[in-house]
Write a protein that binds this DNA or RNA. Structure first.
Length: 248
RNA sequence: UAAGCCGCC
């Protein structure tokens, strides 16, 4: 079953969802009962590929087999509803889930927080963040990154910076800012035309031993271009290659 | 064996 599940997941996530579904039927044919993992991973991949009606059929089939969704299944469903912008359904699924005793994890909260932030619904994200703390679920670096991006997208750089600093102060090293945290904040400063601040962070991350990826360089190049400083943009472009990072 | 974070286009 683990082998089949890996195959189903690999096929679907690679875009070959029809083959993934055929494999599901092949499993049944061979007398191997697809389990919660089989259905959940299929569901997740179909949602990512925007094949909503197929995803619905898979969910229905799973329920017909008497397999109840768990927190992983629900988180995938919540993410799908977020992508569709069905916020009321996101809330109701979240509440129903809790009523039936499925406990949200840090990933569940972060999925919703991230979606709210990307949609500009920062106060809703803040409410969810509070809710998470009340539920005694510890935010992690993904959660902080999501909040930071929410503030950045609203050009609320001071608040984004506060999140970043609060993250840096934590002694749990797993929750220290990572490359993505820097990238998000650098992007925020670039959008706010504070490329100086962005450059400070770019140097700071390297001082901390992080190796910037192509995304960070691209963000800075784009930032300099937007303030019509093509020379600085070119300088970054050259530095990127000198640092051994290939343009994409 | 399944769920959450970043750029340009």
């Amino acid at each position: 079953i683990v082998t089949y599940n890996s195959l189903v997941h690999g096929l679907c996530c690679g875009g070959h969802w029809r083959e993934g579904i055929s494999l599901l039927y092949k499993m049944i044919w061979k007398g191997i009962k697809p389990d919660l993992v089989t259905y959940s991973s299929l569901l997740h991949c179909l949602c990512h590929l925007d094949h909503w009606s197929e995803a619905y059929l898979v969910l229905e089939k799973m329920m017909n087999e008497g397999i109840r969704p768990n927190i992983v299944t629900c988180t995938s469903l919540i993410q799908a509803l977020c992508t569709l912008g069905h916020w009321e359904e996101v809330r109701s699924l979240f509440n129903i889930m809790i009523e039936v005793g499925i406990v949200p994890t840090v990933r569940t909260f972060t999925t919703v927080i991230d979606a709210f932030c990307k949609e500009g619904m920062v106060s809703e994200a803040e409410d969810m963040f509070d809710k998470m703390k009340k539920a005694n679920v510890e935010p992690d670096v993904f959660t902080y990154n999501a909040m930071m991006e929410g503030y950045c997208l609203q050009k609320r750089m001071d608040e984004a910076r506060e999140v970043f600093d609060s993250m840096a102060e934590r002694d749990c090293s797993a929750n220290k800012p990572n490359i993505v945290s820097y990238s998000i904040l650098i992007h925020g400063y670039c959008r706010a035309k504070r490329v100086d601040k962005a450059l400070d962070l770019f140097h700071e991350m390297q001082d901390k031993g992080m190796i910037p990826e192509v995304i960070v360089y691209t963000t800075l190049i784009d930032g300099f271009c937007h303030i019509d400083n093509v020379e600085r943009a070119l300088a970054i472009f050259n530095k990127m290659q000198a640092d051994g990072v290939n343009p994409d």
